[in-house]
Design a binder for these strands. Structure first.
Length: 151
DNA sequence: GCCAACGTTGGC
DNA sequence: GCCAACGTTGGC
């Protein structure tokens, strides 16, 4: 079992969007970074736990807990010219971009990024490192336990 | 809106 | 294969 942090822009998909559809899975579409794609393709397992993080918004931070609900499969938005995630170089027979389904475990208390930065225990956390832009980052078991205990 | 950081592109 | 230019992310 591994742990991850996955960023979503709430204007796109928010924790409340997931909470409004209990039990349903959502495809984690739109990842267009190879490192993040490779985490989904090569490392994630069904049942892995996920910190659902709101980014690119007024108050960024952790909004809930989710879990990986599928293996990797092609992200349909890469083939859709109407989508902002369209990739003209992607081929149906050789998709570039993959995704996994995620499902909400629970909406939690909101833990702002500023609070996360205040915990000495989270100093090493990948998402808090300077210049980090990866939308999917691994979380250590210690960090997972620390955060869930403080939610 | 600004800007630091980083990834990608493309000319050579 | 190098690297400058450019685009994007994302916090502030």
């Amino acid at each position: 079992m591994q742990f991850w942090l996955m960023k979503s822009e709430p204007d796109d998909v928010s924790i409340d969007d997931l909470a409004a559809r209990p039990g349903q899975t959502v495809p984690w579409y739109g990842v267009r970074n190879y490192q993040a794609r490779n985490f989904m393709r090569d490392a994630m397992q069904i049942g892995d736990r996920v910190l659902f993080y709101h980014s690119g918004c007024e108050v960024p931070g952790i909004a809930g807990l989710a879990e990986v609900a599928s293996g990797p499969y092609p992200d349909a938005s890469q083939f859709d010219p109407a989508s902002p995630y369209f990739d003209a170089k992607a081929r149906q027979e050789e998709p570039r971009w993959l995704l996994v389904d995620v499902k909400l475990v629970k909406k939690t208390r909101f833990m702002p990024l500023t609070e996360m930065r205040g915990y000495a225990g989270l100093e090493e956390m990948r998402v808090l490192q300077r210049g980090n832009r990866l939308s999917i980052t691994p979380v250590t078991p210690f960090e997972w336990q620390f955060i869930t205990e403080h939610l």
